[in-house]
């Protein structure tokens, strides 16, 4: 059984003591069942995505059942994506993009302030920054809707159902991710680097731009990516803050699911899957997956 574990790999490098092998446990049954059990999680998590991508390639009329695995490969449904989907995708993308940029603009100073200042009750401050992650999104949605109504009653400006209204809600949940990831990087930051720059005559701004920013960049990318993906996939907040005819892509799909099913949604969903995949690969190229995870985990 000993040989059957990942631990056995440590023995092969020769520097560590070789654990004793026990007689009778050489067959890899335990290993196979362990890895088999682990692969169940992967099947569970990834099979719906594979099915969506696969089924989107099946050419069939609107009235035939969706087929997986696809029998007749074609890109037919990709030509049938309705305008409403493209509009929703555009809205979702611009919303997520703006929300992640603004989350960085708000979050980076917040992380700097939290890590470096010596204000009292720092814990309280940081838990207020983290609070949006603790509040269930559906509560945030309801609360923002009511806030917008009250604001509208007082000033005559109703932001619910507008881009600004949606953006503020998405920004609210995006900020904690950036604060978390950038804060984590800053905690390991060697401040002597900055002192060196300053003592060599660089100004505060130059030091920040040339020393601090490059070092915290992995945290910024990670936090920005989290903020983007959370905004891009959000339903519970957007469902309250969008208006008929002005909905994000996930909300469009959410409502569409209750009505008549058209395989073109599989095509547009596949585009989103590929886009998310591409974005993740790009980030992996820029900062590396390990950095992406280490600097945060988000919540």
């Amino acid at each position: 059984m000993t040989a059957s574990t990942p631990l056995a790999t440590t023995a092969s490098n020769g520097t560590r003591p070789q654990p004793q092998r026990q007689p009778g446990f050489h067959f890899p049954l335990a290993k196979v069942s362990f890895y088999g059990f682990c692969s169940l999680s992967y099947i569970f998590l990834l099979s719906p995505l594979v099915v969506v991508v696969g089924a989107s390639l099946h050419r069939g009329s609107r009235y035939t059942v969706v087929k997986f695995p696809p029998e007749e490969l074609s890109l037919y449904w990709y030509t049938q994506i309705p305008d409403a989907h493209w509009e929703a995708l555009t809205l979702s993308f611009s919303l997520a993009f703006m929300a992640s940029i603004l989350a960085c603009i708000v979050g980076i100073p917040a992380a700097l302030g939290l890590v470096r200042s010596n204000i009292p009750v720092k814990g309280l401050f940081s838990s207020i920054f983290r609070a949006p992650l603790q509040i269930p999104s559906i509560v945030t949605g309801v609360a923002f809707l009511q806030m917008y109504y009250l604001f509208g009653d007082l000033t005559g400006i109703y932001v619910n159902g507008t881009f600004a209204g949606l953006l503020l809600g998405h920004l609210f949940v995006g900020i904690p991710y950036v604060v978390g990831t950038v804060g984590a990087v800053l905690q390991r930051f060697d401040t002597r680097l900055e002192e060196a720059a300053l003592s060599l005559g660089a100004g505060r701004i130059t030091t920040f731009r040339r020393v601090t920013l490059p070092v915290i960049m992995p945290g910024v990318y990670a936090g920005g990516l989290y903020a983007f993906m959370v905004s891009f996939g959000d339903v519970p907040i957007s469902i309250f803050l969008s208006a008929p005819g002005f909905v994000t892509f996930p909300v469009e799909l959410f409502y569409g699911m209750e009505n008549d099913f058209n395989p073109s949604v599989l095509a547009s969903s596949t585009l989103v899957i590929l886009f998310s995949l591409g974005l993740l690969l790009l980030m992996q190229r820029i900062v590396g997956l390990e950095n992406l995870l280490r600097s945060g985990g988000g919540s």
Partner: peptide
């Protein structure tokens, strides 16, 4: 393997539900 997990968490549940419906 980590990337596989991250991808699945990054993609909105609404899309996954389509897959579950079909399956």
């Amino acid at each position: 393997l980590l990337a596989g997990i991250v991808i699945s968490t990054f993609i909105t549940i609404v899309i996954k539900v389509f897959g579950i419906y079909i399956m």
